[in-house]
């Protein structure tokens, strides 16, 4: 691990100022991803700005929305009563991730900004455009079973590993930022980028920008929402495919729906096409399957991950059927 300085500021402006002092400064949350990557020398910050003391608390708004501080631990978000009752998909997504210990350490901001689990990204003997732009990508023709089927590029086929972000994408979450150029907000679905030819640039955050909060706008029908994760073992494994969904059905017809996929792309994948196909149509298993197939129509399998396409279709169909009680 390279040496670094350490500061624990008490205010957001102090944190932003400290991080602006060096181009290689990094904000530090629970450290569960950053410390690991520093040990592997994938990350080599020269300054750590510990932001775990900032942006605390979950504020339930009167209109049914919520504002979750970026420093809140993952366990605390999942256990929050308002989250559990208004947005169960978010509790379930968080609880489907990592382990009890890691969820106690991990923060909301760090979870959003966590980096891919592509094994070649971690291995400094491998070629990786994300780690070393222009070096090439050993995953494209390598062991790519866990990699992306949607939105990938020849430069990078990695996935974003977060479960929590899949729920946030489905819920139209808005991320609040503060930084050298001031405050702004950005929809979570626009925060992570597709790899294109610059997989090393993973988000729309400008250098030194700090996530301060995540806002969930009111969505009454999200009280009936859930998350399903398919993985290689029953617990404590990253998603091969996951689905976060909320659906509003009346008289057998889909009035509204929110749907997002994990494990399939470089970003949490909001299933806009499937949602459009579902809205106003019948809430039947056949139409759920059709909508899922519409979303996956552009999927491009790699040598080892074609199974993900069918798995995603089936998981979407199963989750929507479960939520609506549609006959199998």
């Amino acid at each position: 691990m390279n040496p670094f300085s350490y500061e624990r500021p008490e205010t957001v402006p102090d944190a932003v100022r400290l991080a602006a002092a060096s181009a290689r400064a990094r904000y530090l949350g629970g450290g569960t991803n950053l410390v690991d990557l520093m040990r592997e020398t994938v990350e080599r910050p020269d300054a750590l700005v510990d932001v775990t003391g900032l942006s605390q608390g979950i504020e339930a708004r009167g209109d049914g929305g919520l504002v979750i501080g970026a420093g809140v631990r993952n366990t605390a978000v999942a256990a929050d009563r308002a989250v559990r009752t208004r947005f169960p998909v978010l509790s379930r997504a968080i609880l489907a991730g990592a382990s009890g210990q890691i969820r106690n350490m991990a923060t909301v901001g760090g979870n959003i900004m966590q980096r891919t689990r592509c094994t070649y990204f971690y291995d400094d003997a491998a070629r990786c455009n994300k780690r070393a732009p222009g070096a090439g990508c050993d995953a494209v023709d390598g062991f790519n079973r866990i990699h992306a089927v949607l939105g990938a590029s020849p430069a990078c086929v990695a996935t974003h590993p977060s479960d929590m972000c899949v729920a946030l994408a489905a819920l139209d979450a808005v991320v609040h930022l503060d930084g050298p150029v001031g405050r702004r907000s950005i929809p979570l679905t626009d925060l992570h980028r597709l790899p294109g030819d610059r997989p090393d640039i993973e988000t729309e955050l400008a250098p030194g920008e700090l996530i301060t909060a995540v806002e969930l706008p009111p969505l009454a029908f999200a009280a009936r929402s859930t998350y399903r994760k398919v993985r290689d073992r029953a617990s404590y494994a990253f998603a091969l495919v996951s689905v976060g969904a909320a659906i509003d059905v009346q008289d057998g017809m889909v009035r509204d729906v929110r749907l997002a996929l994990g494990g399939v792309a470089h970003k949490p994948w909001r299933a806009w096409k499937a949602e459009a196909a579902l809205r106003g149509g019948p809430a039947t298993e056949a139409s759920f399957r059709h909508a899922a197939e519409t979303e996956l129509a552009d999927a491009a399998p790699l040598s080892h991950n074609a199974f993900k396409i069918d798995l995603a279709v089936r998981t979407v169909t199963a989750v929507l059927s479960e939520l609506t009680g549609a006959a199998a």
Partner: peptide, 21 residues
């Protein structure tokens, strides 16, 4: 962070001490 052998309690909460600075 993958095995839990380093688990300790901090103010009563379990964490993986290997990932903790």
């Amino acid at each position: 962070g993958a095995c839990g052998a380093c688990t300790v309690l901090v103010d009563g909460e379990r964490i993986n001490s290997c990932l903790a600075l």
